[in-house]
Design a protein around this nucleic acid. Structure first.
Ligand code: FES
Ligand code: FES
Lengths: 148, 148
DNA sequence: ATTATTAAAGATAATTTTGTCCTTAATTTT
DNA sequence: AAAATTAAGGACAAAATTATCTTTAATAAT
């Protein structure tokens, strides 16, 4: 559904929200291993998630530095992660790839897709980062690095 | 959601199902223009859709040749198009990109996604090519080449 | 048979995505 | 102040996707 980048971004955000706080930061190394993603690629993605526009995760350089997420940010919907990666279109656009997916210019899948699209959007817009990260639905410790 | 290839494949299949019959075939040229896709790239995709494994669309070379779809094929679900392009995983796999999206090994999005996934799959597995192509929901003639 | 038309097939190129590496800057510890 | 640790940033490389071009094969019309 999403690109690798966005998948890693979601996993990294959830990982950070689970493992860290302002007092206990996590390193790129740890995050990359925890989510099963290449280290340097993960670093790039974390930059996107922490830059001025996104401000989803926070970071501090130097020893005992690393990444963490503020209470404030963790209350935001996971949608912002997808948005920061520029992939919100994946959820919002036409199944057939036509421009303007809306009731005024429907494609022949639109009527079937409309409801699903709404639910998909809802899933990302209504659930907060914190809620997803600490959901009781799955708390296996080795969660993100299941063997592929 | 899908790759360009799969989007083109879906549009092309729907286009052919609308415009053609065994008596009135359509050329690559016409299809490509009709769906707003690059001609030679469309040709490649049509090859995939017509090869021995897929057999979704049929073709005949030579003058007055072109593509068409059999009654039999048009009764199959549009899912087979997505499958022929090797992108059924898009619908079937984990939102976070983890392996084995199922109730036994859920990720923290799984519970929310489960129902949506089922509907998405249903949309592709329950609707036939013919049904989608000739749906009353959208019969605008210039449908596939809306200006982008 | 020859010519024209159309898809099939293969080679190549451009672009985007994914992944790696190396240097710099920031910050803490010693 | 110096050394160590960590993220930031930029350059580069590999792989995958998308797109184009050229030649070949099939078929029909002349
Ligand atoms: S216009 Fe195609 S899904 Fe909405
Ligand atoms: S396991 Fe992640 S959506 Fe099913």
């Amino acid at each position: 559904m999403f690109s690798k980048s966005t998948e890693y971004a979601l996993r990294a955000t959830i990982y950070i929200a689970r493992q860290s706080s302002i007092h206990k930061k996590v390193s790129i190394q740890e995050i990359a291993e925890g989510i099963g993603a290449p280290k340097h690629f993960t670093a790039k993605i974390l930059q996107q998630l922490s830059n001025k526009n996104a401000q989803i995760v926070s970071s501090i350089s130097g020893p005992s530095g690393g990444f963490y997420i503020t209470e404030e940010a963790s209350k935001k919907p996971i949608y912002i992660v997808v948005e920061a990666m520029g992939e919100n279109t994946v959820i919002e656009s036409c199944v057939l790839g036509l421009p303007n997916c809306n009731d005024a210019t429907p494609c022949s899948m639109h009527k079937s897709y409309k409801g699903i699209k709404k639910e998909l959007l809802g899933m990302f817009k209504n659930r907060t980062i914190n809620e997803v990260a600490n959901s009781k639905d799955c708390l296996t410790p080795v969660y993100f690095n299941r063997n592929k």
